[in-house]
Design a protein around this nucleic acid. Structure first.
Lengths: 244, 244
DNA sequence: GTCTATACACAGATAGAC
DNA sequence: GTCTATCTGTGTATAGAC
């Protein structure tokens, strides 16, 4: 599967999930036609992402949203019952898709070395296709309800665990040098997140998602696969004091 | 200088800067006593950081702030002229301190290997002492005015450049393997940022700032100093396609 | 299904007493 | 220097026409 096929797959999933999430809200059975639902939910979500990613979800007024989505305020409230409800629906959108994609893509039993590369690439590809959503989820996490926050944290830890497990497996099979797998997984996740949080920076520098993926994989591999070279221990010794 | 001395130094700088920033606002010459100014500015800043980091700056009302800071709304407006003004002052606080600390700490001409380690540690130490501010600056960047955003981006690029320059120097002196220095600098910054953005995670795992610093330095060093081992090229070849 | 018009709560900001 | 009381705009949400 190349990047363009991957993109298509995710876009279809997005539409299905629009419908699925709307259908789970029994209070809004006013709208009947599936086509209308998908069309408007999509508009609303896209507009929300656009405005929120510019100035934040709290700063987005319903009047803003109404204009950007091309629907009146009255119409908007046929699709969700409150601004908070909209936020939760949108969060759920991305989570549902993410879980589905990662579940499908990583359920193979390859060699840990390849698996780690594939996990990094899959995460990056997904966050590339759904960049606005990933950015949104990252920046608006603290505006969520208590339950929403819990789910966001759980999701963070879950994807981190995917990396950690692969690293552990590599260590057990004697392929990777023995290191703190959880800490390594944490910084891998941090670097993946940087891809969608600082998208503007990489875009300006013409760094493609494949380029970034290749770099990350090599960077991580150097640490996992390398034997300890001469000056490493010297550097490590300098870790406890700021000045020597 | 160890971490506790470093902390003391930054705390003093913080108080000086409170006064300095207040004095630059000529409209507020009502308050005369320096002690009062520092005491209240400090309260206001701390309260702003506390509330904003919980639910966002936009979501913080002046009534919230008034309660948390222990000052009436009327009193608050003796220290700044608008909510936006408060935001800009607070942004400037951290920027001023950051520039001062990084300028002092990195103006040495050591060996690039040591320098890179020191740069990473200094950044981490500073973001550890001023964690609430760094988190705030990171999360609220998009609420800033146009000028404020420009300054934030400039600051991001400046600290990134500090890393990039050291890496370049190491490459030129033949100490580091030749790689994309800018991309490496970008991900180093991403990992440093993760330290203060996901503080909750590392705190729960009992990872100290020194532990994290040591890990980062080793991780980066493995990439900069290592010769290419056997399986690296294999991994890199896998970069263009998601599935092979 | 979608619109316009409106209710009513709460935001930021200030005036003037103490 | 700090407080209380109040002004005025804007926010979310809804009612009812079409």
């Amino acid at each position: 599967m190349n990047f363009s096929k991957f993109t298509q797959m995710v876009r279809l999933l997005w539409q299905d999930t629009c419908l699925e999430i709307f259908s789970d809200h029994p209070e809004h059975i006013k709208i009947k036609k599936e086509k209308t639902i998908v069309k408007n939910m999509d508009r609303i979500f896209k507009a929300t992402l656009k405005i929120s990613n510019e100035k934040g979800f709290q700063a987005m007024s319903m009047r803003n949203l109404s204009r950007e989505a091309g629907l009146s305020m009255g119409a908007l409230y046929a699709y969700f019952s409150s601004k908070e409800d909209l936020l939760e629906m949108l969060q759920r959108m991305g989570r549902t898709i993410t879980e589905q994609v990662l579940g499908e893509c990583l359920a193979t039993d390859e060699d840990p070395v390849e698996k780690l590369g594939k996990a990094i690439r899959t995460h990056l590809y997904l966050s590339e296709v759904l960049q606005p959503w990933f950015y949104f989820a990252y920046m608006e996490a603290k505006n969520l309800s208590e339950k929403g926050k819990e789910r966001a944290v759980a999701s963070e830890l879950l994807t981190e665990k995917i990396f950690a497990d692969i690293i552990l497996e590599g260590q057990e099979k004697g392929l990777f040098v023995h290191q703190d797998s959880r800490l390594l997984a944490a910084v891998i996740k941090a670097m993946v997140q940087d891809w969608y949080v600082k998208r503007w920076k990489y875009a300006k520098r013409n760094v493609s998602v494949d380029h970034y993926a290749r770099f990350l994989v090599e960077f991580v591999a150097a640490y996992c696969l390398a034997r300890e070279p001469a000056r490493r221990s010297e550097l490590r010794g300098a870790g406890d004091e700021l000045y020597r």
